[in-house]
Amino acid sequence: MDTEQMRADFAYCETIIKKHSKSFYYAFSQLPPEKANAVYAIYAFCRTADDCADSDRPHSEKLESLQQLKQELDLFRDRAEVDHPLWRALRLVFTNYEMDIQAFYDQLTGQWMDLNFSIPRTMEELERYSYYVAGSVGLMLLPVLASKASADLRLSAIELGIAMQITNILRDVGEDFQKKQRIYLPEEEMARFRYTQSDLRHGLITESFVNLWESLAKHADSLYDDFYRSINLFDADSRMPLFLSVGVYRGILDAVRGSDYDCFSKRNYVSKEKMTMISAAVGNRSQIV
Rank of each mutant, 00 (worst) to 15 (best):
S150N: 06
M277F: 10
I119N: 07
F227T: 01
A44N: 01
Y132P: 00
I166D: 03
D9R: 01
K148S: 15
G174Y: 02
A80R: 13
I278V: 12
T206N: 07
R47W: 08
T3Y: 09
D50H: 11
R91H: 12
P241A: 04
K148H: 13
Q67R: 11
C46N: 06
P58E: 08
D262M: 09
L115N: 04
L200W: 06
S118K: 14
A36H: 13
V144P: 07
Y40W: 11
R47Q: 04
V210R: 13
L139R: 13
Y40S: 01
A149W: 07
M164H: 06
R7A: 10
Y26K: 00
A41W: 02
K19P: 02
Y40A: 01
L204P: 00
D172G: 11
L204K: 13
R154I: 07
D114E: 14
L185Q: 10
A80D: 13
S150V: 12
R192H: 10
K180T: 01
H84R: 09
Y269W: 01
S130P: 10
C13H: 02
D106T: 11
R121N: 12
S245T: 13
N211K: 15
D262Y: 07
D172P: 06
E64V: 07
A280F: 11
N232D: 15
T196A: 09
K35Y: 11
V270T: 03
L75E: 14
N168K: 08
Y97Q: 01
G174L: 04
M240G: 04
D152Q: 07
S286N: 07
F104G: 00
V289S: 14
T3W: 08
I119F: 00
Y43C: 06
R171L: 10
G203R: 00
D114I: 06
H59E: 10
W213K: 05
N37L: 05
Q30Y: 10
L160N: 06
L108Y: 00
F28V: 05
E64T: 14
V39D: 00
R239D: 05
A11E: 10
Q107T: 15
S198G: 10
F243L: 08
V210H: 05
Y184D: 05
E4Y: 00
P33G: 04
D172H: 11
Y105F: 15
E124N: 14
E98G: 06
L216W: 05
R121L: 15
R57A: 14
L145W: 11
R121H: 12
E4F: 00
R229K: 14
V82C: 09
K272L: 15
N211R: 15
A236R: 15
S21E: 04
D225Y: 01
